[in-house]
Design a protein around this nucleic acid. Structure first.
Lengths: 349, 349
DNA sequence: CCGCCTGGCGGGAGCGCTCTCGCCTCCCCT
DNA sequence: AGGGGAGGCGAGAGCGCTCCCGCCAGGCGG
């Protein structure tokens, strides 16, 4: 059948335009150092033949791929149930296409995948990697560091002791949590509880930290560990009400948790925000806006986070390609970029 | 700094193992036609040097890339808010990695992106494409067909007149809708309404069709068009109650819509399911299970859909590479695979 | 026992591109 | 008007791999 006609090569275009391969190459890659009339002739030949450069041939010599891997470690299924990654991917994708780079998606679950991913990255198929790994004990980041591929992490890696040569982008979880709790305190609430996320994730740990920044170690009964899910939020809230019925405010570690909290509160006949004020985290719009009452929450700009990660990575790739000479002796590589979070006031607090 | 040591080449491995490049190549690609002792020696050399084949060089000669593009046309932002694509991607990713293929993700919004994607696909960077385009008037599918890349569509393409040479995988939206409505009728409901999705999406159109299969054209007041969102569901339900207060059952085109429906029903003091029974579609677990009351809905296996699409594509790529000779004269190419949907009974109907 | 055939292995070409050279042209300065 | 320099362009050498082909060894039949 349609055995896909052989695509035209540089050679063919050169012949058609009556110039050398080198000149066509120059034109295709920006056209510097070629005089206008020739440029025009080559452009036309390219057009007529429908020439598209063969990326494989190009990579073979340049050793660049104009491709970036996005690694999403996803041990638990539920992680994927929220639009978090979708938004990240959007931001990443936009930024990548703006710079003519491709996005190679690597989804992992389980150990075998880890080594597979590490091998792939070490294989030099991509120029860099954007890695999301939520859990502190995840071996993946270390493996990837070992692969020698420029990498930017999404979220503060748990194992980073601060001095490591790690580049990451994170939301200001701690600051956002502080803002949330302060808001609650500002409302005159005195029994402000916190239902945490899984504390082996740095985002959850940081939010707890922010809560403690404001509340100190106050009443330990007011902190209940949970798991970022609505069901977990329900369980935690029941436990909380049993332990400490006089609670008058809850800072839930994310919006999903908050939705569980609201449900239990309704079920127990507590009015929100009159009896108990509730603040969430994430500003997952469909959840937060549609909840009853609409949820006051801390917004983080997930898409922007993806964008920033990408920019960071591309910039470091650029450096590597141009002047690796001076490796910036003043501020070495390690750095984390922390994106602001903002409190969004709705009805629940 | 660490200027990434040059990776070992086939040549290097060959030297180390004391054989020719060709032999190493043979071993790396399966080892047929090489005697055991040599295979072993080569394997060891590969191991010692940490050799990884250079995919670019390989593609250059084989003209295969072991990579598949996943194109997600996403005109509206909200599409991304539900876990639909995330699940698809999971299925696709699993199947792809099982066959040692990479996933190149192409997210699009807007016209410019369309031509960009078309160019990319036509550029022969990938072996095939998996395309999701929800709207009937989306020009993307046509563009992609034109690019001459083997393609499988996710969801029935709107412009397919049935006779076109199109391969797609879809859920049995129509059948699922029928099952939902029959269930409602079986409950003794006589005023069964349908709140549709955006009818320019085939899934929404098919669900409406399924509703009509059972209800005929009955009372036109019972069909309200909406947009797959909770807010849209609310508006539609209000309108429905105004138009036709005696409604005793609602089949919502998806779970998000159903959640809006439930909210309005609660607000208007109608009991679910006693006064009005409600059925959704999708079985988006977090929404359906957590709703109040838990939602009876039609489940579709999204992840499996991704898997099936991938299998279909890979199979056709295989054919192309091996014996394109006999293009299967009996059953030509065109085909759509329709995956079953099942009714999940919870409390709302 | 010799020739032939089979099968394992090496040599070499070439995939389509980039990039370094070196030549040649044209322009500018003296 | 002539010399020097700069810049435009072409030739050619690979990048790392696959695959075709041809050589050589070993096993068989005549």
């Amino acid at each position: 059948m349609s055995d896909t006609v052989p695509r035209p090569t540089l050679e063919a275009v050169a012949a058609r335009a009556g110039v050398s391969r080198a000149t066509v190459s120059r034109v295709v890659n920006g056209g510097d150092g070629v005089r206008e009339p020739l440029v025009e002739r080559v452009r036309q030949a390219v057009e007529e033949l429908g020439y598209v450069p063969n990326q494989a041939a190009r990579s073979l010599v340049t050793k660049r791929h104009d491709a970036v891997a996005v690694v999403i470690a996803e041990p638990e299924t539920r992680v994927f149930a929220d639009p978090f990654f979708a938004l990240q991917l959007r931001g990443i994708s936009k930024e990548l296409t703006a710079h003519d780079n491709q996005l190679v998606l690597l989804l992992t679950e389980g150990r075998d995948d880890h080594t597979r991913v590490a091998r792939y990255l070490a294989g030099g198929h991509v120029d860099g990697a954007l890695v999301f790994s939520l859990h502190v004990d995840d071996p993946l980041p270390e493996l990837i560091q070992g692969a020698g591929v420029p990498t930017v992490f999404g979220g503060r890696p748990g194992w980073g002791d601060g001095t490591r040569d790690v580049v990451y982008v994170d939301s200001d979880n701690r600051g956002g949590a502080r803002a949330a709790v302060r808001h609650l305190v500002g409302l005159g609430r005195t029994r402000v509880a916190h239902i945490t996320g899984p504390l082996d994730q740095t985002s959850a740990a940081d939010r707890l930290q922010g809560y403690r920044d404001v509340m100190g170690d106050a009443d330990p009964r007011l902190v209940v560990e949970s798991d970022f899910t609505p069901g977990g939020g329900e369980r935690a809230m029941r436990e909380l009400l049993d332990r400490c019925p006089e609670v008058d405010a809850v800072f839930a570690a994310n919006d999903l948790t908050a939705s569980g909290v609201l449900r239990v509160l309704r079920e127990r006949g507590r009015r929100v925000p009159e009896d108990v004020a509730v603040v969430g985290f994430d500003d997952m719009v469909p959840v937060a806006e549609q909840s009853d009452p609409p949820l006051t929450t801390v917004r983080q700009d997930i898409e922007e986070m993806g964008r920033v990660m990408t920019r960071l990575l591309l910039r470091s790739l650029d450096r590597r390609n141009t002047g690796g000479a001076a490796p910036d002796p003043v501020r070495p590589a390690p750095s984390g970029e922390v994106l602001p979070t903002t409190l969004v006031r709705r009805a629940s607090a």
